[in-house]
Design a protein around this nucleic acid. Structure first.
Lengths: 341, 341
DNA sequence: ATCCGTTTCCACATCGTTTTGCGTGCATGC
DNA sequence: GCATGCACGCAAAACGATGTGGAAACGGAT
């Protein structure tokens, strides 16, 4: 006997045609109750699973979405991923989390990702090269950018109010009398680094003060970046009374390095982060930071993608959603003598 | 004109046949230097990308691998993922990280995952139901289990020496004079919880002591689990002098709850974790724990999968790899008065 | 009995690849 | 000059699903 497989096998054991099986699967055309039952029985009996390749070949959809992040070991990103899954799974989409390993790793992965023909891609990547941007645009894949505008025609983006968050941080520090405030950014070419610094500047301006460019250094969004940042700042001057870091990982690394240099936090120098990852509350002293609604960012991004995918809609105007942030004051900027609670 | 697409378009502009294009792509048959050049030129000109669906339809391979984890926000898992990518990307495979959200979420995701026909699946999941195990086995997908034996015929697994790690922890605690040692496990039905408890028992036995079952509680592998665990243990008795936790998240939650109850760590009670996630070094006091080589687990698992996939080999015997662990002593079990260094 | 409108199902073309079995054309050996 | 062998390319048949245009079956109305 010829061993059929796939939908053909189901059709045979159910005693109907291939197209009928397809109909009951997709519900595209009405099918009588009786045959529907037969088909479902056959499906169950054979343990049939549709072949996604064949399906996507015709339908031009893969029902899966990629999330491309620069560093999955940064606890911020898993939360974004979870948020996206909250929305995507119920909608029948599978989320694949791809780790570029670093900003520079993006290009290497992008080829892989485009080859896979995901229905949509969520990108949280800085410094996308022009070539990569072009590849993305040409591919026609739906893109939603996280945390910044990625500069692709017709792609939505969702970010949190970075500038506002840093303005709040700046006000808080200025309000506690700090004036010699250094800033450690991530990669210099990154939008977020600039935005965040911008928020800080804004706080200074609001207080009628100027902000000195010599008080800023750029490294990378990691703990090592924080250590390096402190080293760089303290080569310029040594009387900082506060260090504002572009994210929590940098802040944690910076605190490490400050302590290694015998400085006390916050008595000698205050430190702030951004994101409010779990570790921010756990370090000692606990870190003043800004809550970055990672999970909500993920949810929102997923919704944007789904809307675009459902509507076939290039017609709708580009969406740009900004989520608000919240200042979280902890010990690293306040209690003069950190102690166990 | 008929607008061809895909490989047919390439064939047309290169002035060769479809099969020839396929040949130069796959390198399955020799192709003359001249035509190879023509084809490559056409590919570049058209910006052609092969359709993975069509490809997998014929080749029955998707060139992608899934990693299924119970909780991607547990920092242990991103490291495993990175380790797998270390090996898989150079081999041309794409790794999709799927988050089940919880142990119980596995079943819900498994359907999705099997539908997608990944070439291989790495599972780090406890308490796989018999039904799910059967589905996996039937699917014929290559499976590698992480951290425990998943009980599927012919599937390899890689774990770390949990029992050994906990034995070391136990010896360390007993060596510092602690005797009333409680244990907070994760999910009770989980293999690791049992293995880890077993290691602790072994340490007691080695010292000629017995270990009391009433000293153990099971919750979940999260910070909340740690808080609950402490609550449960202190309902039984209140004179614990050490709490051994099944992972770092539990330990961190436990420390929180202990402090909330006014107990001092490690003066009143010592606490230990497992995994050595970043946060373990950051909490206050820093956490004594066991280094669990997450990244290496990922690499090893990926290698196992690749070997199986390359060899078409169901012939090779099942592999079972155990990675060694290392005790990391920090302040939560030693310095009587925690202080800033 | 005939005709028409529904309902229900089917045949067939199609999506973009891979793969096998055959032509070609050309050089080689006698 | 003729058979032989090689190196290259090509045609065509899968792979497993979707979807459209019709054909059959069935009632009800005339």
């Amino acid at each position: 006997m010829t061993q059929k497989s796939g939908i053909a096998a189901v059709a045979e054991t159910a005693g109907v045609s291939v197209s009928t099986v397809s109909q009951v699967l997709s519900g595209n055309r009405p099918v009588s109750e009786a045959t529907r039952a037969k088909v479902n029985a056959a499906i169950a009996e054979l343990g049939y699973t549709p072949h996604p390749g064949a399906r996507s070949l015709r339908s031009r959809r893969t029902e899966s979405i990629a999330l491309l992040v620069p560093d999955i070991t940064n606890p911020f990103y898993p939360l974004v991923a979870v948020g996206m899954q909250d929305v995507l799974l119920p909608a029948g989409y599978l989320l694949s989390i791809l780790d570029a390993g670093s900003q520079s790793g993006t290009g290497r992965l992008l080829g892989h990702v485009l080859e896979r023909r995901f229905d949509g891609i969520a990108l949280h990547i800085d410094g996308l090269s022009d070539a990569d941007r072009a590849r993305l645009a040409e591919s026609g894949t739906r893109v939603v950018a996280l945390g910044r505008d990625i500069g692709i025609e017709g792609s939505d983006y969702v970010e949190s109010d970075d500038a506002g968050g840093f303005a709040k941080l700046g006000e808080h520090l200025l309000g506690t009398g700090r004036r010699r405030i250094g800033f450690i950014g991530g990669e210099e070419e990154s939008d977020p680094s600039r935005l965040r610094l911008g928020g800080l500047r804004q706080a200074f301006a609001g207080a009628g003060l100027g902000y000195d460019d010599a008080a800023t250094v750029f490294t990378s969004f990691t703990r090592d970046g924080g250590r390096d940042g402190i080293a760089a700042l303290y080569e310029r001057r040594t009387d900082w009374d506060a260090i504002v870091c572009a994210n929590d990982l940098i802040a944690i690394g910076a605190m490490d390095e400050l302590r290694r240099r015998g400085l006390s936090i916050p008595a000698d120098v205050a430190v702030t982060g951004y994101d409010d990852i779990d570790a921010a509350a756990l370090v000692h002293p606990s870190l003043t930071t800004v809550e970055n609604p990672a999970r909500e960012i993920g949810r929102t991004a997923a919704r944007l993608l789904l809307t675009r995918l459902a509507g076939d809609g290039d017609d709708a105007p580009t969406q740009h959603i900004t989520l608000s942030t919240r200042l979280v004051v902890r010990d690293s900027t306040t209690s003069p003598i950190p102690q166990e609670r």
